[in-house]
């Protein structure tokens, strides 16, 4: 029994030694193994050439098997096959990697193209919108402005002439022979103030006129004083006096005949001329 065991141990030792001492792997198989290991350690290759790497592994293992000296041709054959299998795995892995990158590149390019187009379209749209908007704005603004101004002119009961807007303040404004404005406030004058506030760039001429009752000197002075009264009214309402020019024409410029009371009344007036903007 004991002897048998000893024999078994000795036999196994001999067999193991025989294995260890057996001929080494064929020439070239080591190089192929190194290249295969490099590929197997590359995660990209592991992903893209899984099957090919498995086939190559089998081929390399076969090539690594030690062979008798008289089987050198078989050894060469196995190494040749293993070598090509490893290189095929590498090439196929590269191809698939490139293909997967291509997908990404294609997506990238498509995205860039889309972005370019979107941007172009956006810009064109924005430009069109802007052009349309500014035109519309300008048109709307000027239309609104014109409308507004017309409303104010209508309100003022002024007359549009070549010289500008002419507002005629009748003689009811003043007591006979007086330059004082009656009643403190006057609706027409208030409207005038509002209008001048609204259009601060308009220059204003204030011209006093009378009928032909009395001397020319008296009438000229009276007409000027009445025009001055209007100016004072306006400056009191904070209209800048620089905008206001005052003249007294006496009875030089009648608008009706002084032969009738009606005519004379029409001639007694102060005209406010709001000059057109240049």
């Amino acid at each position: 029994m004991n002897r048998k065991a000893t024999a078994a141990v000795v036999l196994s030792s001999v067999l193991l030694t025989a294995c260890a001492m057996s001929p080494t792997s064929p020439d070239g198989s080591e190089d192929v193994r190194t290249r295969l290991t490099t590929l197997q350690q590359n995660p990209e290759m592991k992903t893209h050439a899984r099957t090919e790497l498995r086939d190559a592994e089998a081929a390399v293992q076969l090539a690594e098997q030690p062979l008798a000296d008289n089987e050198a041709a078989l050894a060469d054959y196995r190494v040749y096959m293993a070598d090509r299998m490893v290189e095929i795995a590498r090439a196929k892995g590269q191809t698939r990697l490139l293909e997967s990158e291509r997908e990404r590149l294609g997506e990238q390019r498509d995205a860039a193209r889309l972005a370019a187009r979107t941007r172009e379209a956006d810009r064109a749209h924005a430009e069109a919108e802007r052009a349309r908007g500014s035109q519309a704005d300008a048109a709307a603004l000027s239309a609104r402005e014109a409308e507004e101004m017309q409303r104010r002119i209508d309100d003022l009961e002024a007359e549009a002439t070549e010289r500008g807007l002419v507002l005629t303040l009748g003689d009811v404004l003043f007591a006979t022979g007086s330059a004082q404005i009656q009643g403190g406030t006057n609706q027409n004058l208030e409207k005038l103030v509002t209008f001048l506030d609204q259009y601060p760039d308009r220059q204003v001429l204030i011209e006093g006129h009378t009928d032909n009752v009395g001397s020319a000197m008296f009438n000229e002075t009276l007409s000027r004083q009445r025009a001055e009264s209007v100016r004072r009214f306006l400056t009191d309402r904070r209209i800048n006096s620089d905008r206001l020019t005052v003249s007294g024409f006496g009875f030089d410029r009648p608008i009706a005949s002084n032969d009738s009371a009606m005519g004379r009344q029409q001639n007694r007036r102060v005209e406010v001329i709001i000059e057109n903007r240049e």
Binding site: R84, E87, A91
Partner: peptide
Amino acid sequence: LAMARTEAAKA
């Protein structure tokens, strides 16, 4: 192998 390398080069 020739085919595999051809495909890789084309890719």
